[in-house]
Design a protein around this nucleic acid. Structure first.
Lengths: 70, 70
DNA sequence: CGGTAATCGGGTAATTTGGGCC
DNA sequence: CCTGTCCAAATTACCCGATTAC
């Protein structure tokens, strides 16, 4: 193991996910409570989200259809 | 924590885009439905628009065609 | 152990959503 | 065809104090 200090593995903090979705960390917590997001709870009760999960959800973008021809 | 560089894409809320275009948020929503604007949906159903997309469209204005016959 | 920043929890106001009409 | 306003419901944002994370 090549020493992995305080670096994050694949877990994102509520503030991270909130910034990616442009929403409030509280809203992200709501999604976790609603079961829309997989959340891992720390021993203290704080939530941690999987980067893969968030990235997957962010991939739901709809490409704007410009002119049929360009 | 000063936020981590996790693919931070600047997103705008409907009110933001509406203010930039001087139209109602409803109109912006129609553009998104019409496929004229790229929209990211939050887990709650709300839309988030790319700042780059909006800025790009705002930059495509007509440079005031003056003069030919006025 | 002590300190700062973030997150937790609940509650209320503001915003956004969707469709129909002019 | 496009936009603005109406309605009702859902979702999100910010307030507080307390705890947890590092």
């Amino acid at each position: 193991m090549v020493t992995r200090p305080t670096e994050t593995e694949s877990l994102l903090t509520p503030a991270e996910v909130a910034a990616m979705f442009r929403v409030d960390p509280k809203t992200v917590t709501r999604w976790a409570k609603a079961g829309k997001l997989s959340a891992i709870r720390t021993l203290g009760g704080h939530r941690r989200y999987r980067e893969s999960e968030v990235t997957e959800l962010l991939g739901g973008t709809i490409p704007a259809q410009r002119g049929a021809r360009d």
